[in-house]
Simulated scan of single mutants.
Amino acid sequence: MRRIRATMAALVLAGAGLGTASTAADAAPAATAGVTACPTGWGSGAKGGAATGAVPLENIRTGRHDCFDRMVFDVPGGGSIGYHVRYVDHLSQNATGRHIPVGGGAVLDVRVGAPGYDPDSGTPTYPGQVGHTLPGVDVRGYRTFRDTRFAGSFEGETQIGLGVRARLPFRVVQLPDRLVIDVAHNWTGSR
């Protein structure tokens, strides 16, 4: 029980730090005597979380950190956004099964419980085009991210492919109005 409470407290503190960030690249790793200690123990297994009232996706953005690369899904007014993130051999579009090529040594299939359209009117809220890179996202020069591909929105869920350098540990953090995915630069926790 103490371990669960400690884990929950750490997540709350991590979420509080993320919630105050004004850009995707604001969070800083802990430092001790000039040495950066990167988070460890995230693992590379599938991760998922339930929704509590998601609304349409408005934006996807990325940022670079000392220890990881970050992707943020902005869903204003969305509450806790549902998600499912896992490594796959290749990205298959949820709606059709169509293979969508994604560059990199490994591919994360990211499904977010927020459609890229207004469910009432069908009007697009996110300008992604199936099979193309994410609009406004340029991952050139990132240590971990290699490619992004929009796989579409279907039945209230948006799917993207995130190409990374190799199968690396990652974490997913649910925050009010956004979902954050961090992929570590390595397995050792060193910079």
Rank of each mutant, 00 (worst) to 15 (best):
H185G: 01
Y83C: 04
T20L: 15
V107F: 04
A25W: 06
P176Q: 15
A33T: 09
S22W: 07
G78T: 07
V55D: 06
Y83W: 05
F145M: 14
V85M: 08
G15R: 07
G43W: 10
G15H: 03
A50S: 14
G161W: 07
R140I: 06
G41K: 02
L134D: 06
T144E: 05
Q174I: 14
T52Q: 02
A28K: 13
A21V: 09
A106T: 05
T20S: 10
G34T: 13
G34Q: 08
C67K: 07
G113D: 15
G161H: 05
M8L: 13
A25C: 05
D147C: 07
V72Q: 02
G141E: 12
V183I: 14
V85Q: 04
F73K: 04
G63P: 02
A16W: 03
A166K: 04
I160E: 08
V139Y: 01
H90I: 08
A54R: 02
V12Q: 09
R2E: 15
Y142K: 04
W187E: 14
R86I: 03
M71E: 11
A184E: 05
A24N: 08
G53W: 06
G53D: 09
P29R: 12
A24I: 02
H132Q: 15
H90S: 14
H132A: 15
T188A: 14
R171G: 08
T148V: 10
